[in-house]
Design a protein around this nucleic acid. Structure first.
Lengths: 351, 351
DNA sequence: TTGAAAGCGCTACCAT
DNA sequence: ATGGTAGCGCTTTCAA
């Protein structure tokens, strides 16, 4: 835990001090603090408020939590805190939680060990609920089956559980999103559609590849492995450039490229433009994630949106619902990934 | 506070249960939990560990906090949580805090009322320290002069205080950053340098305008008000396009444009390219903030970096230092804003 | 080497 | 309409 050796400059003003100053009992002060004022004499309440003011008193939630065993805080364990997309979810989760009277205690966790430590900590701090915002990397969740009975409710976003666990869960439909993108391209006359796939270690990459294959099949197009190249979004941009060049070297070259995420797509855009190809007239480009910067690329990037905001909102709402109704059956939600059409795909083909 | 009416499914296992199971006193268990094991008999310790394991016990930090009056958590009040740049600071603050044994409790605050509420909450939750990550909007901080003596130490990032308050503070040098950008442009042969300024309500915008004027003067260039247009980054992108067009309509038009932030710069880039101008050969463009996407624009964007990461790191470090040494004098840090040269400015001029 | 008991600041029950 | 008091789960003297 590190060494927490420090003296607070001044002793805290307590409910006792307030009671004494107002000439009432602590019970009465407590009642006043908790809006149990119906049966309270006006002047008493006033004296208490006056005492609170003049002593600059703030009730201790720590003491309150000890007796109520509720902390009014929710733990958020975020795996990919370096990804702006995931961090962005915070922007929506925090206000909803706050409006419901909860604060968010943030823990980032890069791996299983971090994650276990975070969970332990949140249990020790007695948070009222936990949200996992996960990567699509496979993580062993065996330890989650051994939580104490007193553990708070848990909501899991974007994670395939490896053990039977009946938590509330939220996923998004990577397969469906990719199918939507391919279908859109086919409808605009494309038949030579390439996929820059992400690393196989990610469930999301696998699912998108799956969606790509299925969509081709649906539209009676042949799967050509030359049109599928690895563009690992964790590797260097130079590798994405090379992957793009490999696609362009195929004969005949693709007329549309699905990129493994929006950053890769931006680099693809640039690579195409630098060899003199026009987007979308010569090649259409579609990204993945719908990061904010998509709108101001040149051309603005068409992309398969990951519903991270909805996921964050739903997660906190599900948690609040469960807090209100602990015994309701657990819920599984699959959010759609929808195609957001912008300029980088807006041309029709005939070849 | 909302209504927190809920029963925990199961009673918590307490230190008492552990003591009983191990056949020792709670004191001894407490000693074991807090590594005071020097004078402890081996078998006793083993029995305790065994009991902890089999009961699946987690000590309550709430109870611990009540007696130690330390919570091992730090409050972060973040004004512009919607800005990826500010959110990004979290990625660096959280791990440092965690390594030092602290968690981060997050509060977003859009205005003064939010902020006051957040501060009150953090005081009630008895966090060990508070970091303010502020906008450059002017906010009244009178209420901060009236905090109770028991209030924890505070570190303030990016805020000009309106009242005498001796908190640790971190700023960054917007004036210097803009001077660096203009100087760089002058050295590359530019003399017609335009500024898309941000809204006057922001200190940062005012400071950048100030830096622009000073730099022109330093280099013996005349201030031409036609070269200064408003591009409010809170307004619509269409207004930035118009501001850019106004600059291009000036005779003679500028050969370089400093944008109010990177997003505006991206739109400027696109606007220039769409009227057939090449960047940087015809016009150089420089952004502000150094957001991650700068690197994969086409051309990659030269920008004046805002040291948000360093600010976050320094803030948490300053807080930890103060926690260790409460009585050290307060510290004021001014971090440099340095020019990050990329492709959008890499051409020399002679006209 | 271990234990008993006071007390952290509050809530909640039971009195009056 | 208000108060006394037990007790939340832990740490921390002080004693044994």
């Amino acid at each position: 835990m590190g060494s927490l050796s420090r003296q607070r400059p001044a002793k805290r003003v307590t409910i006792k001090d307030v009671a004494q100053a107002a000439g009432v009992s602590v019970t009465t002060v407590s009642n006043a603090l908790n809006q149990r004022t119906e049966a309270m004499a006006e002047p008493t309440l006033l004296r208490i408020q006056e005492a609170i003011h003049s002593l600059n008193y703030r009730p201790s939630r720590v003491a309150r939590s000890l007796v109520t065993s509720q902390t009014a805080t929710i733990g958020l364990i975020i795996a990919e805190i370096e990804t702006p997309l995931f961090l962005q979810a915070l922007h929506f989760i925090e206000p909803i939680a706050r409006n419901a009277g909860y604060n968010v205690l943030l823990c980032s966790a890069q791996n299983l060990a971090d994650e276990q430590q975070a969970v332990n900590l949140l249990l020790e701090k007695q948070v009222d609920g936990i949200i996992f915002l996960s990567t699509s990397l496979y993580v062993d969740d065996e330890y989650l089956t051994r939580l104490p009975l007193s553990a708070p409710p848990i909501v899991i976003i974007n994670r395939t559980l490896t053990h039977p666990l009946n938590f509330d869960q939220i996923h998004w439909d990577n397969v469906g999103g990719t199918i939507a993108a391919v279908t859109y391209l086919v409808q605009h006359g494309h038949s030579r559609i390439a996929l820059l796939r992400g690393p196989a270690s990610r469930r999301s990459s696998t699912e998108r590849l799956e969606g790509y294959r299925r969509a081709l099949q649906q539209h009676g197009l042949e799967y050509n492995e030359d049109y599928v190249q690895l563009a690992d979004f964790e590797a260097s941009p130079e590798t994405w450039v090379q992957a793009t060049r490999r696609l362009l070297a195929v004969s005949p070259p693709p007329t549309a490229i699905l990129a493994s995420n929006d950053i890769v797509a931006a680099v693809v855009l640039r690579t195409l433009q630098r060899v003199g190809l026009r987007v979308p007239q010569d090649v259409a480009v579609i990204g993945t994630d719908n990061q904010p910067f998509c709108t101001f690329l040149n051309p603005a990037l068409t992309t398969v949106g990951v519903p991270i905001i909805e996921a964050g909102q739903r997660a906190i709402e599900m948690l609040l619902t469960r807090l209100a109704e602990p015994h309701r059956p657990s819920e599984q939600v699959l959010l759609p990934c929808s195609l957001i059409v912008r300029e980088s795909s807006e041309a029709d083909y005939n070849d």
